[in-house]
Design a protein around this nucleic acid. Structure first.
Lengths: 150, 150
DNA sequence: TAAAATACCATGATATACCATAATTAATGT
DNA sequence: ACATTAATTATGGTATATCATGGTATTTTA
């Protein structure tokens, strides 16, 4: 999954990248989106992944624990299923768009089993930050034979 | 899933969100509501879940404890079935509305297998509280696959 | 029989599904 | 390797269906 940039129209409609659609179709599941907890972006995944997470929460905490209550509220309260129409678009809600500061353009970033949707400028900054972070943590690579320029 | 905000009229009528109705219809079951034990809100679920809930209470608290009896009594004493009319509305009782401090607007908050109905302002505060709380406890979450920092 | 609760009807708003065109990517042949 | 064609994908616009909500009629019950 690479990063693709798509337009968002006045109604919040965006084309879900074809690659993503293919996966969703194959699993014949549905997309779920929610506000990321860690960044100003929308996060999405396939529905069953969310259910697994819920199951994990239920198993890892006491049924009546405050934490479990909080987590289920946060996750299921925020998340929503998004079905795409015959042309492959979903309509993002105002809440999600605001959280990600998206107006007319959005960047889809693959993240393994999930993906994120960013405001292009914010993503550019974030990507730069990540690059810097990686370089700092792995100075070894710069001298080695493997990841170099050649 | 999701949070939707609906109006409550003078008679206590509220539209049960369409998604919820779809589920109830599919399971051809009915909605049960009761005063939440942990927060100033109304809690609801599909009828058969309430029985499972009772079982979970028995498992998660000491079998001989008074607490368990109290919990089951509280919930079952309070719970009531709510059928929705042809337009998809239920009428909430005065008791429930007062407990949740709801007058003319209500927020439905998805909670996985259950849902909650809140006074909008109270929910806003609660959501803020939860987000803050979760951020504090973040390390625990990072082991999961969906919703972590990454 | 009066009051309350419930079921039904009608309308406006909103969101969804569909169609048509533009742009991009992939494929083909020269 | 390039140009041309074909196929897929993205986007703008419009029609349709669904949903929420105010109001009214009918049933229940006290």
């Amino acid at each position: 999954m690479d990063t693709v940039i798509n337009k968002v129209d006045a109604k919040g409609r965006v084309s879900l990248p074809a690659d993503y659609r293919a996966i969703v179709k194959e699993l014949n599941s549905e997309i779920v989106c929610y506000r990321s907890l860690s960044a100003p972006c929308i996060e999405g995944c396939v529905e069953d992944l969310l259910e697994k997470l819920a199951a994990e929460i239920e198993n890892s905490t006491d049924f009546f624990s405050q934490t479990q209550d909080d987590l289920t509220n946060l996750i299921f309260g925020d998340a929503r299923r998004f079905t795409f129409d015959s042309t492959g678009r979903i309509v993002l809600t105002e809440k999600l768009l605001q959280h990600a500061e998206i107006t007319d353009t959005a960047v889809f970033v693959g993240k393994g089993r999930k993906f994120q949707i960013w405001n292009p400028q914010n993503w550019a900054k974030e990507e730069a930050r990540i690059r810097a972070e990686v370089m700092k943590k792995r100075p070894v690579l710069n001298t080695g034979k493997c990841g170099g320029t050649n």
